[in-house]
Simulated assay, not measured.
Amino acid sequence: MSAVTVLICDDSSLARKQLLRALPAAWPLDILQAASGREALERIREGGVDVLLLDLTMPDMDGYQVLAALRQEQLGCKVIVISADVQEEAVRRVLGLGALAFIRKPADPLHLQQTLAGLGVAGAELPALGERNAGQVSFRDAFREVVNVAMGRAAALLAKVLGVFVQLPIPNVNILEVGELHMALADAAQGDKLSAVCQGYIGGGIAGEALLIFHDSEIADMARLMRTDDYLELEMLLDLSSLLISACLSGIADQIDVVFSQGHPQVLGQHASIDELIRVNRQRWKNTLAVEISYSLEGHDIHFDLLLLFTEDSVELLSRKLALEMN
């Protein structure tokens, strides 16, 4: 069987590495990699790419735009979307744009191999995995991909509850000193009053605070989407926070093999209360692993930020959990 050229397109080096590991070394594949949709499209235009393994949530040019460009330019290659965005509407859209299959992240190697075999890309026999040279992955990139998968699961749940399509961002993962964290929150609050819900979590020695921040001007619209006219906006904030925070933490926990216990969610009120939260936690958050996820709802002027603030001590434990994927 002649070699098949497979292009892996994902902005995450961990995701690319996971796919490389999932492709048996015994298969006659020429494997290329692209870190952005634009880079992938340029490579496909050069010709010779048989199969594209495509992520959806990427900077500059996302997977939807790549699929649309492939169709418009009539560039013939088979596309399998591999994404953390597992909303039913996301699957429907990519298949409508010409993708031949959708696989949820992290891709199950057997599922990927069977999908490729079903498309005639490889033989029906599925050989044992062989290690391909995939390079090393930084902690930040590895954990960002873990968060990306968790974020997608939480969005799918939110989409079902609200009956909307949730537009997913690329999560930001940074180590921040308390002053930088304070500045980041101040920037988020600029020009608008905020309400926030805070919830602590701990598991396997990994601990932190989840902070869900809402713009007050959008709360009434959110309440209407959740059909909560018959009860208080405060309850709506707590319900929505519980849903999103629990789903996101559960998605992270599943991937790093821990179980998080969560405290009771607390409404912090306006921006001054966020300042108070930082002041009280100043010692614990001297250097914080800060994860920021900004959700927005398509067709609605509604967005909100989920911050996961891990304690400094948690970083070493998280690094150990991710060590296998990083090396």
Rank of each mutant, 00 (worst) to 15 (best):
R279W: 07
P106V: 14
E298C: 05
L29V: 12
L306E: 03
A156P: 04
A159N: 08
Q167S: 10
D108A: 03
G96L: 04
L308E: 00
K286T: 11
A134G: 09
Q65F: 04
S294I: 12
V149P: 01
G96F: 10
D141F: 05
F139P: 10
V4Q: 05
P109Y: 09
S83C: 01
A117V: 10
L158T: 14
L185N: 00
L168M: 03
E73N: 12
R132I: 05
Q72C: 08
H271F: 15
I31A: 03
G191V: 14
V51F: 04
G118S: 07
N281R: 15
L324A: 11
F214Q: 01
A223D: 03
F260Q: 02
D55I: 11
D60F: 08
A128N: 02
F139H: 05
S36M: 05
G123H: 06
G299V: 15
V91T: 02
D50W: 07
T57I: 13
N172H: 08
S294G: 04
L307H: 10
A159T: 06
Q283D: 12
V91I: 13
D10S: 07
S13Y: 05
P127D: 01
I206S: 00
V6E: 03
I274P: 03
Q18V: 10
S314V: 15
A159G: 10
V79N: 01
D10R: 00
A68W: 07
K17R: 12
L308V: 13
D301T: 14
